[in-house]
């Protein structure tokens, strides 16, 4: 196996032209898959020395997050806390301190486990993904990217994520079997644009139900343009239960998760609806 340490995106893309080479970010998924013999790459392209990929910054109407940003960096960032609350919350409970120091948001998408904690918040926040390859650049809605199979053409680098800054408020919650180092059994992120006690627009995303995280369009529509009150909350819970039931079909976990999602959704919405104290300041 070869091991490369490129210093720029261009260099990394050049190296990725050869078949059998994989990008290495934190390695918290990749190195385990290699040890288990699930994958046997001919070469690893370690992205750790490309500073450009580690930036979090505001760029006009967008919040830009480099793919090599760690969960720790995101969880420490004031920008993320203020502009992408659901993502910030997800970063507090992801893995353990050691894992958060190493695992990246790009790797979270690259690995794309059904339980990836970073994806429901990014979906709810309407994030776009910037991809680069020898064929050029592409900007695509994360929600659309997650419908592709395979997720990425080989040799495609996830450069980063772009979150539109349009005054959305958001919240995340997950259900794990313990308080730390818990892979999500169920996760959800809600985003909400509101005015005068009315939910103008809503996005609702779920993780660990089905193959990949997804946005529920019907749920978002049924909750949009309505007064935010008790019955809105109850409908959010009921609608989530239906969305989860539909996504899981006859899977063994369906009866449990259909009920459990109610509590998870309430928790995710609590921080947003709890009497205006919604931005974490």
């Amino acid at each position: 196996m070869d091991y490369f340490r490129p210093l720029s995106i261009e260099e990394a893309l050049g190296l990725a032209q050869q078949p059998g080479r994989l990008f290495l970010a934190g390695g918290t998924d990749l190195s385990l898959h290699m040890r288990e013999g699930r994958i046997n790459p001919l070469g690893l392209i370690d992205l750790g020395k490309i500073a450009e990929l580690k930036e979090i910054r505001l760029e006009g109407e967008w919040l830009e997050i480099g793919s090599m940003t760690t969960f720790y960096d995101l969880g420490q960032s004031d920008l993320i806390r203020k502009q992408a609350k659901a993502l910030w919350q997800a970063c507090q409970t992801m893995g353990s301190p050691q894992i958060r120091h190493q695992a990246t948001i790009g790797g979270n998408l690259g690995n794309c486990s059904p339980a990836a904690d970073g994806l429901p918040p990014l979906l709810a926040l309407g994030a776009e993904v910037e991809l680069v390859s020898a064929r050029g650049r592409e900007r695509v809605l994360l929600a659309d990217l997650l419908k592709r199979t395979p997720l990425l053409e080989s040799g495609t680098l996830i450069k980063g994520f772009l979150i539109p800054l349009q005054g959305w408020d958001s919240g995340f919650a997950k259900l794990g079997r313990r308080q730390a180092l818990a892979i999500a059994r169920l996760s959800t992120a809600f985003a909400l644009k509101r005015q005068d006690g009315v939910a103008l627009e809503v996005r609702a995303a779920f993780g660990a139900v089905g193959r990949r995280a997804f946005l529920s369009e019907p749920l978002a529509q049924s909750l949009s343009g309505r007064v935010l009150n008790e019955s809105w909350l109850e409908d959010a819970v009921k609608g989530s239960q239906n969305a989860v039931a539909e996504a899981l079909g006859s899977r063994a976990s369906a009866p449990y998760k259909r009920v459990a999602v109610g509590g998870v959704v309430r928790q995710a919405l609590k921080t947003m609806l709890g009497g205006g104290n919604h931005d974490g300041d």
């Binding site: 340490r5 918290t28 190195s31 370690d46 050691q98 120091h101 190493q102 180092l181």
Partner: peptide, 28 residues
Amino acid sequence: GEGECGACTVIMDGKTVNSCLVLAGQAD
């Protein structure tokens, strides 16, 4: 050997990591 137990914890540039999940090249 899989990031769960923390027995292999070391401090790398001021932050804890599980040394069982860090490839030698990443520590360069």
